[in-house]
Write a protein that binds this DNA or RNA. Sequence first.
DNA 1: AATATTAATCGTAATATTGCAATATATAAA
DNA 2: TTTATATATTGCAATATTACGATTAATATT
Lengths: 110, 110
Amino acid sequence: MGVSKTEIFTAQQNTIALFAKVIGHPARVAILQQLFKLNSCVCGDLVLEIGLAQPTISQHLKELKNLGLIKGNVEGTSVCYCIDQENWSKMKELMSEFLNQDIQSNGSCC
Amino acid sequence: MGVSKTEIFTAQQNTIALFAKVIGHPARVAILQQLFKLNSCVCGDLVLEIGLAQPTISQHLKELKNLGLIKGNVEGTSVCYCIDQENWSKMKELMSEFLNQDIQSNGSCC
DNA sequence: AATATTAATCGTAATATTGCAATATATAAA
DNA sequence: TTTATATATTGCAATATTACGATTAATATT
């Protein structure tokens, strides 16, 4: 069907999946890395840096913004984007907790 | 197009995206959590636990296996799955490095 | 006001993902 | 050897994602 059955999972599972999904595209990884590198960055610079068309970058920025990982400020005709550090930290917390899980049983593995 | 332009990104960016993508579905998050909880788990138990059809679970397991995050051993008619701890650690390392990035510039944010 | 600049949105084509019924495969048990 | 059990594979329908050209919107500049 192409649509996930989110209702059968916990809120935490769905949230982890949503954050992972938005990082699950190399263009968005590249955008985030660039924003960490430059602190703030105008949309047009990302288009040049990354090499995808302007509407495509704009779409990826929108997804990152929807999840709160970045924020954008209008500056004249350009829009300046940067990491939303507070939300990034929250996401990092959630993902780290998931990644750092330990095997909870001592039964031998297969 | 539906197809990512992976060739314009670095290997690291593509790898991060691939790992994030496979975690980007709540069913796979749930499977991984269950495997951490029980150490090893038979496919059929995951079907019961998670509540998706057997072919669907089987497909998700395949994706996790393709990326090396889990491994499966045949035990009679069942297949026992567990976390591949070595590869999980490598993935964790890569993702943590990405998540723990710090702003590298002191220019003010927008 | 007219024009240039920048980014967002719309529309669309190509492809990927999700989920499951039906079927195939492989081993165990009778 | 037949039958039961467990998992994988196939095929398909519904939906989502990716990418971009064309256009729109919004502000700056002349």
